[in-house]
């Protein structure tokens, strides 16, 4: 991928996930570099860049958005895997996970080995359904309701 293509990719990523007060734009966490060097996702970035006009990065913002909408509409086979690649890399970045934790309480760590504490099952919750009679159908083979 040329340096021009990398510039286009970085601009594209920021158009697709603009930063806000909580979440960084992809350019701040160097997501374009992570994507082009990724074993699986690099090819998706290449395909997406190939679907964009060469002057994408220098077009006005509204025109860039229109281009992306067009690719989404007309080249789903390129666009859909690219979005999976973008969202996958963005939402596992430590900076973004930290933002998710601040916003939701979700722990910015791996699921294992700690797991999560949940309230144990309380049998009292089935009082209503347990009070009903059998609700399965007589099959005529020995187990009948």
């Amino acid at each position: 991928m040329t340096s021009i293509d990398r510039t286009s990719l970085a601009v594209l990523l920021d158009r697709m996930i603009p930063g806000d007060a909580d979440f960084p734009p992809p350019s701040r966490i160097e997501l374009a570099d992570a994507m082009v060097t990724h074993e699986r996702f690099g090819a998706m970035a290449e395909a997406m860049i190939a679907a964009l006009p060469a002057d994408f990065s220098t077009r006005p913002k509204e025109a860039q958005i229109a281009v992306v909408e067009s690719v989404e509409r007309e080249k789903a086979a390129v666009f859909d895997p690219f979005v999976v690649a973008l969202y996958s890399l963005y939402y596992v970045h430590p900076t973004v996970l930290a933002a998710v934790e601040r916003a939701s309480g979700y722990a910015a760590r791996a699921p294992q080995p700690e797991g999560y504490a949940l309230k144990r099952f309380d049998p009292a919750i089935v009082a209503v359904p347990a009070s009903r009679g059998p609700q399965y159908r007589d099959a005529g083979t020995g187990s009948s309701s």
């Binding site: 697709m16 969202y87 996958s88 939402y91 596992v92 996970l97 979700y106």
Partner: peptide
């Protein structure tokens, strides 16, 4: 889902890209 699964969709539609994403 976790954050990625929520964003890419599956149970729900994919979270739209653009200004309303976050």
């Amino acid at each position: 889902n976790g954050p990625v699964g929520t964003a890419v969709g599956g149970y729900l539609p994919r979270v739209p890209w653009g200004e309303g994403h976050h």
